[in-house]
Design a protein around this nucleic acid. Structure first.
Length: 111
DNA sequence: AAGTTGACCCCGA
DNA sequence: TTCGGGGCCAACT
């Protein structure tokens, strides 16, 4: 049984709209642990055993780099899924990441 | 039980 | 601007 922190991360990641991406830091911050962005990585690492699928491909590091692509069952799938959603990926990096960045605080605050 | 590692981030040189 | 080091905290050895 995964800890609550993991499920929180997963839930949040599932809220990311198609064609948008976010960063580990933003997630960590939203969950109250601004400095624990590494734990978000661990949560992603455990996302394989998540009860429901987690769109981990929409989570990248602060500069929009696909840092976790190597950890997917099929690394190329991460980029493919992003491009399928309209996100342009070039050289393992999200183009216009600044525009596509989905900030949980801002977006969920507007609700 | 203790040390190392890591899908990160920030800051100073 | 790029580079190195410190911090974070759970998982792994």
């Amino acid at each position: 049984m995964p800890s609550d922190f993991y499920t929180d991360v997963w839930d949040l990641v599932r809220l990311i709209p198609e064609g948008r991406v976010t960063s580990y830091g933003a997630i960590a911050k939203y969950l109250g642990s601004a400095r624990s962005s590494r734990m978000v990585g661990w949560a992603m690492n455990a996302s394989h055993s998540a009860p429901e699928p987690v769109p981990a491909h929409r989570v990248v590091n602060r500069i929009g780099m696909l840092s976790g692509k190597a950890h997917f069952p099929d690394p190329d799938e991460m980029q493919r899924r992003l491009e399928a959603e309209g996100v342009v990926v070039e050289n393992d990096r999200v183009v216009d990441f600044d525009l596509l960045c989905w900030n949980p605080m801002t977006e969920l605050m507007l609700e």
